[in-house]
Simulated assay, not measured.
Amino acid sequence: MNYTATLISMGHGVCYALVSVLFIFLAKLLDDRRTKDFDDDRHIDDGNMAVGLRRAGLYLGIAIGMVGALSGDSSGFSDDMIYLVVDGIVITCCLFISRSINDHIMMGHLHNDRECVKVFVLEDGRTTTGNTALGMVEAGMYIATGFILNGSMSGGGGSFYQSLGSALLFFILGQIVLLALGLIYELITPFNVREEIKKNNPAAGIGLAGILVALGIILKSSLSGPFTGWVTDITGFFIYTVFGMVLLLVFSALADRFLLPTTNIATEIKEDRNVAALVVVQATIIAVALIIAHAI
């Protein structure tokens, strides 16, 4: 065993990890700056789940994306560090763009920042601060986007600029696909999903966030691997998109039928606001997505 080479490799790994962690810290500073009208740290300290969830989703999205940037063959430590920094900047920018898309389109009739510090009166008369349902959806959008960026930045093939262009292209296509899934989910659900989220129904937030994350996992699998050409990669992406959407909707219906035999998802969300039931169902959907992503 070559201990010198092992120590050098470990040192390089620590440097890559530090750069990735620095981008998480940078995202925190940027989000603090963006939400300067209220103190996120104070809200988190006070137990505001909405703010905590959206921040957790942002950090996880960056970490998931950076894992993709760290994969692939090495070009040498110096070049790898430069590429990692550039990829980190792209990932961070893309996640903030995704947040804006979520705010203005996915949840277009709401204002995420205001909703996440809004005071809600519960049925028993108690009050709570922050729209937890909306925080879950924003976190789900971050994590799903992180998986898409992970897949588009992993693997090799093509030049650095081709890889960067591919990441940006598939980020844009990925956002369109996630919005399309959100619309389809709204259309096939027998109640107004956005209205339930506006009412701070956490079960509704889990339902939408879970299926977004599941699709992100499947799309990551379609994007992973070497760059093989624009036409081939885009065609493969859309085939996986249709395939993934159909499978997720089918398995969602099966989960509704077999995991909730005495009730159904619509009742558990709208009438019962049953967070426990939705956690089980959406965890199953995500588990299925993980299996599909590694089986095809």
Rank of each mutant, 00 (worst) to 15 (best):
G174K: 05
G125Q: 00
E115P: 08
A50S: 15
M141D: 12
A56L: 14
S152A: 15
L183V: 15
H294D: 09
G158P: 08
D41P: 02
F160Y: 13
L110T: 12
V213D: 07
N131S: 11
M81C: 10
I64R: 11
A283T: 14
G11M: 03
T267R: 14
P190Q: 05
L30P: 07
A253Y: 13
I143R: 13
Y240Q: 08
G88I: 06
F227M: 10
H12T: 12
T235M: 11
M106H: 12
G13E: 06
A167Q: 01
E271Y: 09
G72N: 04
A203L: 00
T145M: 10
N102F: 10
L290W: 03
V137M: 10
N264I: 05
C116M: 15
M245P: 00
L26F: 15
F38I: 01
A27Y: 01
G229D: 01
A133W: 04
M153H: 10
D32Q: 08
V86T: 09
G151L: 02
F147T: 09
H294P: 00
T145V: 10
S252V: 00
G140T: 04
L164W: 02
D124F: 06
V67H: 11
V275F: 12
I91K: 13
R54T: 01
G229F: 03
G76L: 09
L178K: 03
E195C: 05
A293D: 07
L181S: 04
V246M: 09
L223M: 06
V275L: 13
T228R: 12
G65K: 10
G146D: 08
V19W: 00
R33Q: 04
I265K: 12
C93A: 15
G165S: 07
A289P: 07
G125M: 00
I269P: 07
G57S: 09
V21P: 02
G76P: 05
K270I: 05
I8T: 13
T132Q: 14
H12C: 05
H294Y: 05
L248Q: 08
G225C: 07
V213Y: 03
L248E: 02
C15Y: 05
E123F: 07
D256H: 08
A209M: 07
I89L: 14
Y185E: 09
T267E: 15
Y161C: 09
K199D: 13
M136W: 06
I148A: 13
G135W: 04
I291A: 14
G52F: 06
T145E: 02
Y240V: 04
I286L: 09
N150T: 01
A283H: 08
T128L: 04
G135F: 00
I265V: 14
N2L: 07
H111G: 08
I188E: 05
M1W: 01
G52L: 03
L84K: 11
A295K: 08
M10L: 14
A180Y: 01
F120L: 07
T262W: 08
G146I: 03
A27F: 02
N201P: 08
E196D: 11
G65D: 07
F237P: 09
N200T: 11
T228C: 05
D40S: 10
S74K: 10
F243S: 14
L122C: 13
L110W: 04
S163K: 14
S98I: 00
F238N: 08
I269G: 09
F25R: 15
L178N: 00
N112I: 10
I239T: 11
